[in-house]
């Protein structure tokens, strides 16, 4: 049979579109339910335990005179929502970075974005105390760009190009430098107290007004990530293939880089330099839903939010009334996971 005959013979009912949207839908729905449950759990437990009924009534009929309602509304709820938000930001930025650079070790922490943001935050605290939160976010974004620029700059100097493990080494060196500089600034200007919290990572200081400022940016960045999600899949096949398929790779990479920097910058400005969320979550998500970024982006956002909410919960429950830094808890998961990936030689994405 000739090729042409075959072509006309293909019956439409033979064609079954196979993908993994079912698993992805389960993750989105199940993940959202899990996230709401985790948020409820996290809000009701803490230095003072509050039963879940009170949590519910604090949300639906808030009573100003009840201390428990005040704790929930002013302290716990913004904190937990902040945790969910930064988790989603780190995870989505990690997903985009891993896809667009084809580097399975890409993560805003490992590639210097977080340290860059933290460095800029140190400068803000030292030289412009009392700066409005809006500007802090902007500087955090610039810091992420600075960190990424240094890491990719140094990485591309080395012979053999931007190999995954090399970039991570450059990321470690740049992060160490930027953190040392930030600490120097912190000691000299006596702002260590303010900053310590940012390095360790924690959402305990999150307030409603912070969330109100960052939320629209995060929404825009997520919409942008979804808009480009198909393009991320195409670019993850390699630059030459993407060009061959008619993608304007330079333009797409530019927009994606902006989205990554906004997400990482915002996340660091809220929680501090917490690493590994953007490393772990995209891998787990890809394992579950496959390689289609139209599903990876929303699923990793939900799973990332869930991870950080649970980490924050564990951070408060581990040694009450003291709080364990979230960054340390996530690193407990992240470091072995990183070693596992690095052992595979940083291959494949």
């Amino acid at each position: 049979m000739s090729i042409l005959e075959k072509r006309t013979q293909i019956a439409t009912e033979d064609i079954v579109y196979r993908s993994r949207p079912i698993i992805a839908s389960i993750i989105i729905i199940g993940g959202l339910i899990g996230l709401v449950a985790a948020i409820g759990l996290s809000v009701s437990f803490g230095a003072a335990d509050i039963d879940i009924g009170t949590v519910w009534s604090a949300i639906v009929q808030y009573n100003d005179e009840l201390t428990s309602h005040q704790i929930i509304k002013e302290i716990r709820l913004p904190r937990v929502l902040g945790a969910a938000l930064v988790g989603a930001c780190f995870a989505v930025s990690g997903s985009i970075m891993q896809g667009m650079t084809r580097n399975p070790l890409a993560d805003s922490g490992l590639l210097g974005l977080n340290a860059g943001s933290a460095f800029m935050l140190a400068i803000c605290f030292a030289f412009f105390p009392g700066m409005p939160y809006m500007y802090i976010i902007f500087f955090s974004f610039l810091g992420a760009a600075l960190g990424a620029g240094l890491v990719f700059g140094i990485g591309s100097l080395s012979r053999g190009g931007l190999k995954p493990v090399r970039l991570v080494l450059a990321g470690a060196a740049v992060s160490a430098l930027l953190i040392a500089l930030s600490e120097g600034i912190a000691i000299y200007y006596r702002i260590s107290q303010d900053l310590a919290f940012w390095y360790a990572g924690g959402v305990s200081g999150t307030k409603w007004e912070n969330l109100e400022i960052v939320a629209p940016w995060v929404v825009v960045a997520f919409v942008g990530a979804m808009f480009f999600s198909k393009s991320i899949t195409i670019i993850s096949l390699g630059e030459e293939i993407a060009i061959g398929l008619g993608q304007r790779t330079k333009k797409i990479k530019f927009f994606l880089a902006i989205i990554v920097l906004v997400l990482a910058g915002i996340a660091v400005s809220v929680v501090g330099a917490v690493g590994f969320v953007g490393l772990i979550i995209p891998h787990i998500t890809r394992f579950l839903v496959g390689h289609d970024y139209r599903w990876i982006i929303p699923c990793s956002a939900i799973l990332g939010g869930l991870l950080v909410v649970l980490a924050d919960f564990a951070a408060r429950m581990a040694n009450p009334p003291l709080e364990t830094p979230i960054g340390a808890l996530i690193a407990l998961l992240g470091v072995p996971f990183f070693l596992y990936l690095a052992r595979k030689g940083g291959e494949g994405i």
Partner: peptide
């Protein structure tokens, strides 16, 4: 293109 790596999965 020559030798293209395929993302696993």
């Amino acid at each position: 293109p020559q030798s293209s790596e395929v993302p696993p999965g």
